[in-house]
Design a protein around this nucleic acid. Sequence first.
DNA 1: CGTAAAATTGAGCTGTCTCAATCAATGTGG
DNA 2: CCACATTGATTGAGACAGCTCAATTTTACG
Lengths: 243, 243
Amino acid sequence: MPSTTQKTAKSGCSNCVMRGLGLCRVLIDLGWEKPHANDGSEITQARAVFAARRPLFPEDEVFDSVPVICDGWAATIMNLSNGGRQILSFRLPGEMIDTSLLFEQQLRRSIEAITRGCYRNFDRAQLRAALFVSPSMFDRLLLTHYNERQRADQLITDLGRRTGHERVARLLLDLWTRLSKLYDLSDAGFDFPLRQIHIADATGLTPVYVSNILSDFRKNGMVEISDRALKINDLTKLRRLAT
Amino acid sequence: MPSTTQKTAKSGCSNCVMRGLGLCRVLIDLGWEKPHANDGSEITQARAVFAARRPLFPEDEVFDSVPVICDGWAATIMNLSNGGRQILSFRLPGEMIDTSLLFEQQLRRSIEAITRGCYRNFDRAQLRAALFVSPSMFDRLLLTHYNERQRADQLITDLGRRTGHERVARLLLDLWTRLSKLYDLSDAGFDFPLRQIHIADATGLTPVYVSNILSDFRKNGMVEISDRALKINDLTKLRRLAT
DNA sequence: CGTAAAATTGAGCTGTCTCAATCAATGTGG
DNA sequence: CCACATTGATTGAGACAGCTCAATTTTACG
């Protein structure tokens, strides 16, 4: 059984991008939003729920508002004409589906749910207006951008120049790092909803090969995945691989 | 001999990012810059020249101004601890070394010259101030961002899910497209300063394998590289491969 | 409980790499 | 402007990381 410590503390609105960007406060000050309880109870009607492992938005979706993931995981995906797919990024709770939606209507990438969860739609015009209220907000928006690009550049380097084992190790570490900022992860393991096919699509590998790699990791006592939980047994080894 | 038609028309300042972003006009209006002649003759002293195939900026360089390439090609590179390198992007004349330098001092990527050329330093504070003069300027800046990320996402997909032949075809087409926006490319071929090792570092392949691929292309009558010039003989075939 | 989805395992196979040798191009100093 | 030194390109042989196909077992879920 996965230890579900992560359902605690910091879930809900408290780690939402809107707060990270300082947007929530501004929206509230402007009277466009009411403050939300951490458990999100009062805003349920504003949320859209999604099921696990289902398409969330198709590639050609036209957005007239900006969705933010309140709960659950999703993936940004680029589809090839030959049926191949590449996962560009995983979106965790509190993250905007894509920052570019603040200024553009189309994404040209499809979004797929990984777990079940929910998102909230923010009005684009309002958000944009809020951005212009304070100049420092722009710096924060741009910072978010640079972080995203940093991640993209890292991925490029991973796919271009690292072996399968290294790529998987890095993905696991990356997710572990991001998750520890959201939750208090117990050493015993944490919820890990990715299927091997997600790992494959994110690392440019084959599901079969990912299975082999993970089994190698298990044999080496580095990492263990079972019951939808990931346990890192030897962080040092994993880090060394991911260098 | 390469046909050097591309030295004509649109070189110099006329296709500079500063214009693309509308920055040049604003800087001039603010009295911070004087309009430049297209041949760039009057601003020579403000330019820094660089030699071909030499490091331009190391990974840890601290920038206190924003360099813009006036002439020549450069590459943005991520270096691995094991000596491997991944080219993230090629910078063509008129492009900023990196947009993030508008808001950050460090790049964490090294820059290398490909051809010889020159760049100009713009004052960061002035540029930022100029950005705040008009809100529409921000949209243009953000648009530049999204284009860059679009390119990055494409590269991720290429490296993750396409074969060597496809990657090279796409790189050549991409460069051809970008260059045709800068110059009037003759059908006879155009200046192409990349060494095979650049192609390899950009596509995540080996120089030896790139050589094989290009030789395949040659045998198929698709493209031809000689004398530092690239000639596309069968655009349709190339496009089909790059789909 | 039964069916569908996911993971494992094994046997080949191929795209891409490494190593190495040779040849061509480019740049440099005298 | 030539001779040499360096860097880049080509080619071939062999190796291996990662793929495909396929069969089986395990897990998830209505």
